[in-house]
Design a protein around this nucleic acid. Structure first.
Length: 594
RNA sequence: GCGACCGUAGUCUAAUGGAUAGAACACUGGACUCCGACUCCAGCAAUGCGGGUUCGAUUCCCGCCGGGCGCACCA
């Protein structure tokens, strides 16, 4: 289905053309003065210069041309040259009728040329617990993936584990110190390694920070860790076996922690890029891109238009070990080979932008990706606490993700049960309350994050996010639940709405709701094009508001005119479907009651 | 030092170069005999400073002030 703005623009553009002006000037946008009109066209002012005519003269002519057009209930020109429009109620009702008939899509067409888009998000480190820093990448990445999928693209989400750098060397070094008798450290060992890992997840989580701390104080220890990293990368068997243990223990733990939060299509890591490194490096050398500088192997990525010196992209350290850039580049090798993506989106902390500029430029220069493959850096800001500083526990440490989530679950559970006891007793059992609390808590967290522009820092305020009032996830869910409740009651009384048409609006609040509903397809499109989930959030907030205003201004079940009543119910159905579709692409869902 | 980013009501946040800068929280005042009042309605209140481009600037350009960030052998 065409977007309503395009349909309107079509009419207005035709009017411009009929008056002898360029149809391009007929572009219509949403009004920014809802008190005056619903849509506006500013083309007359832009056209004034070209045709050397006063803008309001042009606007007057266009308005005259539009008079009698069944699409509009109002078309007027306002000085200096605005063209203000209101949509005819019957036209809008018909548009919604078509939307509802378009099951599951509600008027939003899939793209004509679907792309294969890989999305690199999550980025947890093995052997380290997930902490709040991982939350944004997961939430934003998941939503971008779902929005893209809704638009018809093939979206492939890859967790891109941090499993290859110095951290692995640190763990090996520390483990060797603690359990030197293990066969993994015996270089001449020929036998099979044990199947059971020599540590549990909690031991692993303790080993890494301990090793990391030691390496900062003990130079020799750090040397050993770097040596172990290098040997692991060179394929030393015992270390490789240890790596698989670390991975298996860690990944099963990560999967558990990510459950319900996000779902990755691929569980690849940096280590999966290792097999591609030697050949990639060799090729870069042969083709003259890579050269030795200060003992390291680098590729220049400067460009003439740079306003500052962009350091070269480092491919190998002076000891021959690979590093961050190396695995990111080699990861591109297998991604191109296995999936031939048209685009790759990296959802990463914005502080890493320079690194990705280097990697992207290097990949292009050395031909790792096709020239037409788009590499996009979607940098997100820091999640701060109420004090405006990076989010910490009360003690000042890093907050584990599972603790953050369980804390909010408990908070929501409290609210739901308190409400049960206080005002409306819906007969929710403790078990249902617990499930519902999880659903609402997830919505609170995700909505709180996604309603901000990704690139900006934001304040994670538990009290605000979990509130049922204001621009919050729970408010959206409440609205959905309320609609479900009304519909349930309506159908429960044996009512049916088959064959009932959606009627033109009878009131301002109803028309406003209908106008909001009609924006669905345009919202999804821009949210995808701008990789901006926050646009979906502000849309559903406005839609929820429009619904609640309508609800208060009109009696739905008690409406006397049966046709009007049925039309109202159809609006509720459509509102519910669209809200549910939107929260689904944001990555959460609504309970039956709350 | 160099570079890029950000600066909007008390707080938090939105706005393809357009009209009177839009919400939320907080605050003030209203609305439940009724479909879920965890709701709704009304009010108060903001573009860091100074130039420039434009018919028109939160938006584009320049300078200043303020804030966090990044600058090759961590990831």
């Amino acid at each position: 289905m065409k977007k309503i703005l395009d349909l309107i623009s079509g009419e207005v553009a035709a009017a411009f053309a009929a008056c002898g002006y360029d149809a391009e000037y007929g572009k219509v946008t949403l009004s920014n003065r809802p008190d005056l009109c619903e849509y506006q066209c500013n083309g007359a002012m832009a056209a004034a210069k070209e045709y050397k005519t006063a803008p309001f003269m042009i606007a007057d002519r266009i308005v005259e041309k539009l008079s009698g057009n069944p699409m509009f209930s109002m078309a007027e020109s306002v000085k200096p040259g605005f063209i203000n429009l209101k949509l005819e109620g019957a036209y809008l009702a018909d548009y919604l009728e078509q939307m509802q008939a378009d099951t599951g899509r509600f008027g939003c067409e899939k793209v004509k040329e679907p792309k294969v888009i890989m999305i690199d998000y999550g980025g947890p480190n093995v052997a380290k617990p997930l902490h709040v820093g991982h939350l944004r990448s997961a939430i934003i990445g998941e939503s971008v993936k779902r929005i893209g999928r809704f638009m018809g693209h093939t979206m492939i989400g890859d967790v891109h584990l941090g499993d290859w750098g110095l951290q692995m060397g640190l763990i090996i070094t520390e483990l060797k110190l603690r359990q030197p008798e293990l066969p993994y450290f015996e270089e001449a060992y020929e036998g099979a390694y044990p199947e059971e890992p020599p540590f549990t997840i909690s031991e692993l989580e303790e080993i890494y920070p301990a090793a990391s701390a030691k390496s900062k104080e003990d130079e020799a220890y750090k040397e050993a860790a770097m040596q172990a990293t290098f040997e692991l990368q060179q394929g030393r068997k015992g270390y490789q076996a240890l790596l698989s243990h670390i991975l298996s223990v860690s990944v099963s733990d990560l999967k558990q922690n990510y459950e319900n939060l996000v779902s990755f299509d691929l569980w690849k890591g940096e280590s999966d890029a290792q097999p591609y490194i030697p050949e990639m490096v060799q090729k870069m050398k042969e083709e003259g891109f890579a050269y030795v500088s200060d003992g390291t192997l680098v590729v220049d990525v400067k460009e003439e238009t740079d306003t500052k010196e962009i350091p070269p992209c480092m491919i190998l350290k002076s000891d021959g070990a690979s590093l961050y850039s190396t695995t990111d580049l080699a990861t591109l090798v297998w991604r191109m080979q296995d999936y031939q993506p048209d685009e790759i989106i990296y959802v990463v902390d914005k502080r890493q932008e320079l690194h990705f500029i280097q990697v992207f430029r290097c990949a292009r220069k050395t031909g790792l990706v096709k020239p037409e493959t788009e590499l996009k850096f979607l940098g997100f800001g820091t999640m701060n606490g109420k004090d405006g500083k990076p989010f910490k526990t009360r003690e000042g440490g890093v907050m584990r993700l599972e603790h953050l989530i369980s804390g909010i679950n408990a908070e929501m559970y409290k609210k739901i049960t308190e409400n049960q006891n206080a005002k409306e007793n819906l007969g929710i059992s403790p078990e249902e309350a617990e499930e519902t609390a999880k659903t609402v808590a997830l919505a609170a967290i995700k909505y709180g994050d996604l309603s901000n522009q990704a690139g900006k820092d934001y304040i994670f305020d538990v009290d605000r996010f979990t509130s049922f009032e204001g621009n919050t996830g729970p408010y959206i869910l409440y609205t959905i639940v309320r609609i479900k409740s009304i519909l349930k009651k309506y159908y429960g009384m044996g009512n049916q709405i088959q064959e009932a048409p959606i009627l033109a609006a009878h009131s301002e609040s109803e028309k406003n709701l209908m106008l909001e509903l009609s924006k669905f397809n345009a919202t999804m499109e821009t949210a995808f094009e701008e990789t901006a989930p926050h646009k979906v959030c502000s849309y559903i907030y406005e839609l929820a508001n429009a619904f609640n205003s309508f609800y208060h201004a009109n009696k739905i079940m008690a409406e006397e005119d049966e046709n009007v009543r049925k039309s109202y119910i159809r609006l509720l159905e459509l509102t519910k479907s669209i809200l549910e579709t939107c929260i689904d692409v944001l990555g959460f869902s609504a309970p039956e009651r709350m």
